[in-house]
Write a protein that binds this DNA or RNA. Sequence first.
DNA 1: GGAAGTGTGTAAAGCTACCC
DNA 2: GGGTAGCTTTACACACTTCC
Length: 320
Amino acid sequence: MLREQIVSPSAAAQREGIGMTLDITRTELGLLLTLDVLLVERNVTRAAQRLGISQPALSAQLSRLREIFGDQLLVPAGRGLEVTDRAQSIMGPLHRHLEELISLVRETQVFDPFTADRVFVIATTDYAQQTIVPEIIRSVHDAAPGVVLVFVPITAEGLIQKVQSGHISVVVASDSVIPDALRAFPLFTDRHVMVQRESHPRGTEAPGMDEYCALEHAGVSLDGQPHGMIDDHLQQHGRKRRLIAAVPSYAGLPILLQSSDLVVTVPRRVASHFMGRVEIFPLPFETPLLTYLVAWHERSHGDTGNKWLRDIIIRTLASK
DNA sequence: GGAAGTGTGTAAAGCTACCC
DNA sequence: GGGTAGCTTTACACACTTCC
């Protein structure tokens, strides 16, 4: 008989009514997974496909769930199903607890990079995509040929939720981007430099403050605003530079440099990856040090696969 | 070891609501 | 009103566990 109590000191104690009498069965635990999928899909056919069973089988499971909860849980609404108030109240806690159980299982599983076929999603900034992504891909592929890395751009909106839900495995970005709620480990630091094309008419001397502000600049604007961190910093010191154009990505800067007399101010790592011949100068003023981190959510902290990924990113980048 | 009970699966048929 | 989509019910099969 499969139906048995999960938490009980002994069968004898059960018969005697001694010990814990948690009224939940292995079957019901499986049904909770079904319910979780059903509440998301709100469609028996699609939920059955996701769970890899037939639609009637899932319908039977829904029937048992309705019996257990004493509620319809999902009621017909047109051609689909609508959740009841009771199901609505169950939905959040159920999903959270199941996520915790899944994490628990993952924590106990040993991640073997040689045989792993897992997909990791890494959220990065434009900076990382221009500089360190190739190194991460090389290191991961060498160590784990079956692992697939998916890089996605960081969007401030919902970042925490995406990391918390597991849609994003880790975040690689500067400390100004990483939310405090995430665990993080420092990778390296960087500073801004000024870059111009080779044979620029202004010559090859490092610029002074007056010259820097008088030069025509191009920049990167992710949010559509025509000023950034450097402009804010200059403004605090009562200075202003001449920003002529802003492009949405660091990738657009080299062509601007080669085809004009514009100069750009970017992190040194970005400058060192620019195509074409360029000249790099220190800035005539101090800027805050950029600290880059790898960050992850508490729920992934014990996941051996996630830990392996963090370690390989740290090993690859921390020494650079 | 075999019978009985339980859980879960599929196939088929029926019902209901929506769309044209 | 017929076609379609989706859910439920029924009948039956199979696997597994428990009990004798």
